[in-house]
């Protein structure tokens, strides 16, 4: 099996999906490391799973939570850990609509 290679563009795409930013230097060390990890997890490809259907753990509709409204948390408790709040809301710099 050929090794899974990963390009710098691919890593940038993953970083964007991850909302992470890497310096050029970090990226350069990241790629060989990441390829080693991929080589490691690529082992799963050795296993034939064609005969396996994904099964789900399930419960019956009748056992689900009844639709009853309960007391919510106090607003100040919801906001207490936020780095910035205004007017009872979480706050970020103005976004373009």
């Amino acid at each position: 099996m050929s090794k899974t290679k990963i390009s710098i563009e691919e890593v940038r795409r993953l970083a964007s999906l991850s909302a992470l930013d890497f310096t050029e230097e970090e990226l350069n060390s990241f790629i060989p490391e990441f390829e080693k990890i991929l080589e490691f997890v690529d082992q799963v490809k050795n296993c034939d799973t064609d005969d396996v259907e994904i099964e789900y753990t399930s419960h019956k509709l009748a056992t689900l939570r009844e639709d009853e409204a309960k007391e919510s948390s106090p607003q100040e408790e919801i906001l207490m850990n936020s780095p910035k709040t205004k007017k009872g809301s979480f706050c970020v710099p103005k976004m373009l609509d």
């Binding site: 795409r13 992470l20 490391e33 990441f34 990890i37 490809k45 994904i54």
Partner: peptide, 27 residues
């Protein structure tokens, strides 16, 4: 590293080869 790896195995084009494969292997 793990967030990046996770997004890799879930991303389109790799999902079946990694995530789904691993779930099937688990089964």
């Amino acid at each position: 590293r793990r967030i990046m790896l996770g997004n890799f195995v879930l991303s389109s084009g790799y999902f079946d080869a990694y995530y789904n494969k691993a779930k099937k292997l688990q089964q």
